[in-house]
């Protein structure tokens, strides 16, 4: 596994230009996640209406993997129904090798259904960094379960 595969251009782009950073006018749920081991922090606000995640705002600081993953996630989940978000979360975790297996993925192309997020599959080869990639997703799950 080479570092070039880990630090793909799309990851560095999301790290340097994180998406969905603008605060929401009327969030319906909020969660803060952090990884005490390395200090990565992600804060998420979401607006859910009629079972659809209409808006999301992400803030935080940390390594390229944690911040890029949260940014890509924000793009991917906006406008999705909560059920779709749940499936996507399961698929992402499966790609990282940490899912419960409820949302299996194609082993040949593990990121095929995940779009840009597919770029993160290289993280799986760096086990200590999986938690970084997962932080945004876990924080989103927490926000949605508090809703």
């Amino acid at each position: 596994m080479s570092l070039e595969e880990l630090y793909r251009e799309v990851i560095l782009d999301h790290y340097r230009n994180p998406r969905r950073r603008d605060a929401l006018a009327a969030p319906t749920a909020h969660a803060e996640g952090h990884n005490p081991l390395c200090g990565d922090e992600i804060t998420i606000d979401v607006a859910v209406s009629d079972g659809t995640l209409t808006e999301i705002a992400v803030s935080g600081q940390g390594c390229s993997i944690s911040q890029a993953s949260a940014s890509m996630m924000a793009e991917a989940v906006t406008g999705k129904t909560l059920e779709e978000v749940d499936t996507l979360t399961g698929q992402f975790k499966s790609m990282m090798g940490i899912g419960d297996g409820a949302d299996p993925i194609d082993p040949e192309r593990p990121g095929a259904t995940l779009g840009d997020l597919e770029a993160l599959q290289g993280v799986k080869k760096f086990p200590v960094r999986i938690k970084c990639a997962d932080l945004g997703w876990t924080t989103l799950e927490e926000a949605l379960s508090s809703d």
Binding site: L3, L6, Y7, R16, C38, D40, G62, C63, S64, I65, F126, V128, R129, C132
Partner: peptide, 14 residues
């Protein structure tokens, strides 16, 4: 630069 310390550590480890 703007390379986060965790990324530095991963790169150095390689």
């Amino acid at each position: 630069a703007d390379v986060h310390p965790h990324d530095i550590a991963t790169i150095l480890d390689q």
